[in-house]
Simulated assay, not measured.
Amino acid sequence: MSTTTAPASATVADAGYGSARRRDPVLIGLWISLVLVAVVWIAPFVFIVFTSLKTTGDVMTTGAFTPPATVHYQNYENAWARGDFSTTFTNSVIITFIKVPLGLFISAMAAYALARMRIIWGKLILLIILFGTMIPFQVMLAPIFTVVNSFGLIDTYPGIILPYLAFGVPYQVFILHGFFSVIPRELSEAARIDGASDITIFRRIFLPASIPVLAALLILDFVNTWNEFAMALVILQDAGMWTLPLGLMSFQGQFSNDYGQLNAAIVMTVLPATIVYLIFQRYFVSGLMSGAVKG
């Protein structure tokens, strides 16, 4: 028996090894493609970081991707002071750290109510909310300005946070509604038998289960809010209320020839969003895939 089994096992192993070898060119091609794409995406960031650490003379005399011979950290100090980035950074932090958690909390509650609670015209309400994802906010800038101005909220934090919420919540409700819909009903029904209310079920079952989705939405919402420019330009007209993108625009207009400081300002503007992405990136793909699946 052993004499017949061994050759068969060897044949299967050889077949698997041969199949793996046949797949090698495909895998090599895939890796080459991924490396090329990574280089294309990383190259501008390398250029910006290297330039931010050079003097203007070094930028003119050295190659774009040549590391700085002498690291010039003063570019960051000078750009921070000359561009008044302490003010714009504080405004961006206040707006983003209020809007993002508040928007996620409102979206999670709305998605839970529409997915698991019996609401009259619930499907119609969901369709109306999802209609908000189809409207580009750029075409609504003039009406938004009129409404915000009529409430006297121009150059205020509520004046910019409320429109951000209005255009951010529908997409988040769509993703979270899809995720909540596939959670087994037995979990919530068992909790109801034990006397749990909807608030308790939402807080102890659905919120912990949706952490990957919430983390993915947090990344998207943080980056979009942190980098948003057009709506902030319309509503925040006082320089003392500007966010970082507006401050960077002003700095670029004043010091466009000082390449070292200009690129240092760019690095300081995008660094917080990059840090947030790196912290939560392991949840990003799994979270969006979970939210995109419907039962």
Rank of each mutant, 00 (worst) to 15 (best):
A108I: 00
L126N: 07
V139K: 06
A108R: 01
L130Q: 03
A110M: 12
P136I: 10
Y112C: 02
L126E: 09
V139S: 14
Y112W: 01
I120K: 13
G122V: 03
P136V: 09
L124R: 10
M109L: 13
I135F: 12
P101R: 14
W121M: 10
M117F: 03
L114P: 01
F105G: 08
M140D: 02
T133L: 09
R118M: 08
L130D: 05
S107L: 05
I106Y: 01
M117S: 00
K123V: 08
I129P: 08
P101G: 10
M109P: 04
I120R: 15
S107A: 15
L127R: 12
L126P: 04
L124M: 10
R116T: 10
M109G: 02
A142Y: 15
S107H: 08
I120Q: 09
L104W: 03
L102G: 03
I125A: 13
A113I: 12
P101Q: 13
A111S: 09
M117C: 04
L102F: 12
I125E: 04
I120V: 10
L124V: 10
I125N: 06
M140Q: 13
V139D: 11
F105N: 06
M117E: 02
I135D: 06
I119N: 03
I125G: 02
A113N: 02
L141Q: 06
F131N: 11
A113M: 11
K123Y: 04
Y112G: 08
F137D: 05
M117K: 05
M109R: 06
I106Q: 07
K123N: 15
A113P: 01
Y112M: 04
I128T: 14
I120G: 04
I106F: 11
I129A: 09
R118G: 05
F137H: 13
K123G: 08
M109Q: 10
M134H: 05
I129T: 10
F131C: 12
I120S: 08
G103T: 09
V139W: 11
M140E: 03
G122T: 03
W121H: 07
I120H: 05
L126Y: 14
S107P: 09
W121S: 08
F105V: 14
M134Y: 11
M140G: 01
A142M: 15
L130M: 14
G122P: 00
A108H: 02
A111L: 03
V139C: 07
P136C: 10
I128V: 15
K123L: 11
M117N: 00
M117R: 03
T133N: 12
L127Q: 13
A113E: 00
F131Q: 04
A142V: 15
M134N: 11
F137V: 13
L126C: 06
A115T: 01
G132V: 04
P136D: 07
S107I: 01
M140S: 15
L126G: 06
M109H: 08
I135R: 12
A113G: 07
K123D: 14
L127T: 10
L102A: 03
A111K: 03
L141P: 02
A110S: 13
I106P: 07
M140C: 07
I119L: 14
A115S: 15
T133W: 08
G122I: 00
M109C: 07
L126H: 06
L126W: 07
I119V: 13
F105P: 03
P101N: 14
L130P: 08
G103E: 13
A108M: 01
P101E: 12
Y112N: 06
G103A: 12
